[in-house]
C-alpha cells in the first residue's frame, strides 16, 4: 500500500464549482504559476474549470479557508490513435510549499482518480518533468506506469514522461462511441 502519511486531518477537501471562482481562482492561478516558466491565461483555467469542475478538487486550510492544494483535470473521448478510449487527464497539480510531504497531493490525486473512475474513465494520463522525481514517485505508488518519454516537452527544454494508469481493459472491438464528445455533465 502507499506509504504516504495521511494528509493532515484538519484540511478541508472541496470539489470546485463556478460559484467559488471569485474566491479561489486567483489563489489557484498563483499556486500553479509558481512552477511555470510562463503563466497560463485565465482562459486556460476556465477551459478546464468550467467544463470539468467536478474533476477539480481543492485542499483548504481549516483556519482561514485559504488554498493549500489543487488538482485540475479533464475527461474526454480520445481517438487520435487506434481504439478510442475515455481518457482522463490530470492537467495541473500543486501543493503550497509549507504543506508538501504530507500527502496532500496524493489525497487530491486519489479524489480525482475516484471521480474519473465513477465517470467510467478507461485510463488516466498526465505528463511530468523528467527530473520531478517526487511527482513520479507519487503517481507510481498509486499504479501509474511511464509509457513514453517526450523529448524537450517543456518550454524550459526539459523532457517529460507520459504516465498512464489503466482503469479497465481496453478492448479494441468495443469503443465508447465517437459521437459522444466531451463529457460535460
Amino acid at each position: 500500500m502507499a506509504q504516504t502519511a495521511e494528509p493532515p486531518q484538519e484540511l478541508h477537501f472541496v470539489q470546485y464549482n463556478h460559484s467559488l471562482e471569485a474566491q479561489y481562482l486567483p489563489a489557484i492561478r498563483a499556486l500553479i504559476s509558481k512552477d511555470l516558466s510562463e503563466p497560463y491565461s485565465i482562459y486556460v483555467y476556465r477551459y478546464f474549470l468550467c467544463q470539468w469542475a467536478h474533476l477539480c478538487f481543492m485542499a483548504l486550510s481549516p483556519v482561514d479557508g485559504s488554498l493549500v492544494g489543487v488538482i485540475i483535470c479533464k475527461l474526454e473521448v480520445h481517438a487520435v490513435h487506434s481504439t478510442p478510449t475515455r481518457r482522463g487527464y490530470i492537467a495541473m497539480l500543486a501543493t503550497a510549499s509549507p504543506y508538501r510531504g504530507r500527502g496532500v497531493a496524493t489525497a487530491l490525486v486519489k479524489m480525482a482518480i475516484d471521480a474519473m473512475a465513477v465517470r467510467k474513465a478507461d485510463e488516466i494520463v498526465l505528463e511530468t518533468e523528467e527530473d520531478n522525481l517526487s511527482a513520479m514517485r507519487l503517481y507510481e505508488r498509486l499504479g501509474f506506469l511511464r509509457s513514453k518519454k517526450l523529448h524537450r516537452y517543456y518550454l524550459n527544454g526539459n523532457s517529460a514522461y507520459r504516465l498512464v494508469l489503466l482503469l479497465r481493459s481496453v478492448d479494441p472491438d468495443s469503443s465508447p462511441g465517437l459521437g459522444e464528445g466531451a463529457i460535460t455533465e
Binding site: I113, R137, E140, R141, L142, G143, L166, L167
Partner: peptide, 9 residues
C-alpha cells in the same frame, strides 16, 4: 510500490 489503483494484469 503499493499501487492501490492498479493490478498486475
Amino acid at each position: 510500490p503499493g499501487r492501490p489503483y492498479s493490478n498486475d494484469e
